[in-house]
């Protein structure tokens, strides 16, 4: 007998507002090339760490590039992980994505630059016009190290300085953006305020410049959810997210404009659904091998309680606040 899960509180809330969440025409292919990372951050929704072994195989890499070649609507290739740079074909993926005329974004943790053999990453990024999105939870050392591990802030500063040194945010075409997640069970601050404070502090104390700062809400899944439960914060955090539900975030949700590809080629509405193994709705293409932009356009999005994370307060997406 097949059992059907009851609709989540999030789905019921949307129903109560007279609608469901539907995607638009996808414009971004977000590719998660694997869960291996040189760090193991407390908030990571991927549960990424040096111990993870999941790596995107060759046929999936080729299928992603083939989809990009066939679908001009997908203007952006967004490469994430883990630390995506650790994938053996990372550089090839970037080069071929750029050769197809796509904007290529890399979600870069900064410290991977200091792994053996990766010192040349800033130069590589600059040579290929990669938009670099760097994780920096806070402009103070203490807060950043609490989330990402001891010594991470100091190495992140060095990494940002290396990116500036090759032209990032000193030349308009080389875009360097920062991403900040709260260091705990609370909502992010106003994006503009934190961007201003971070800009002033990093310039004054470290000579660092950047384009924009994006605030992202910590998602109540995976490692962060485990921490919430251990610390006795899960119920209060979920209540905080739900109470802060803001319907004006709905039009800009990232699930409406991207398709997320798992390391094994399965397709998802977003990176969070990917980590929950919540695949696309039945009837949609299941993997990158049967990608069909027409069918994926205007598809219903699968939701769950974690969706309150993207719709709380000013909202949260890969590009930061939404409202």
């Amino acid at each position: 007998m097949t059992t059907v899960a009851p609709p989540s509180r999030f789905a019921r809330l949307l129903e109560g507002r007279g609608g469901e969440l539907r995607a638009a025409v996808p414009t971004t292919l977000q590719v998660n090339v694997g869960k291996r990372c040189n760090q193991a951050c407390h908030h990571c929704h991927v549960d990424a760490s040096p111990a993870r072994t999941e790596v995107m195989p060759d046929d999936v890499v080729e299928a992603c590039l083939d989809v990009l070649a066939r679908a001009p609507e997908l203007g952006t290739l967004d490469i994430t992980g883990g630390a995506p740079e650790l994938h053996p074909r990372f550089r090839e993926l970037v080069v071929r994505g750029r050769a197809l005329g796509r904007k290529v974004m890399v979600r870069h943790n900064l410290t991977v630059q200091f792994e053996p053999g990766f010192a040349g990453l800033p130069r590589f990024f600059a040579d290929h016009g990669v938009e670099v999105v760097c994780s920096l939870p806070h402009y103070t050392e203490e807060a950043t190290d609490r989330q990402r591990g001891r010594g991470v802030f100091a190495r992140s500063v060095e990494g940002l300085q290396a990116l500036n040194a090759v032209g990032y945010s000193r030349e308009d075409a080389l875009v360097l953006n920062l991403v900040s997640n709260p260091v705990g069970a609370f909502l992010p601050p106003a994006q503009g305020d934190l961007e201003r404070d971070t800009r002033e502090w990093l310039l004054a104390h470290h000579g660092i410049v950047f384009h924009s700062l994006f605030t992202i809400t910590n998602m109540p899944i995976s490692r962060f959810a485990a921490w919430l439960r251990r610390a006795g914060n899960y119920e209060a955090y979920m209540a905080r997210l739900e109470a802060a539900f803001n319907p004006s975030t709905l039009p800009g949700l990232m699930c409406r404009s991207l398709v997320s590809v798992g390391y094994d080629g399965r397709l998802y509405d977003c990176d969070f659904n990917q980590m929950l193994e919540l695949g696309l709705e039945a009837g949609q293409p299941a993997t990158i091998f049967d990608f069909d932009l027409r069918r994926l356009s205007f598809r219903p999005v699968r939701t769950g309680e974690h969706c309150f994370g993207c719709t709380a307060g000013a909202g949260s997406s890969c590009g930061g606040a939404l409202a």
Binding site: H138, T140, E142, P182, G184, P188, P189, A190, D193, D197
Partner: peptide, 12 residues
């Protein structure tokens, strides 16, 4: 304390 953290301030 929670409100201050949500304003981008830290325990420092």
């Amino acid at each position: 304390t929670q409100t201050a953290l949500e304003q981008g301030l830290t325990i420092k």
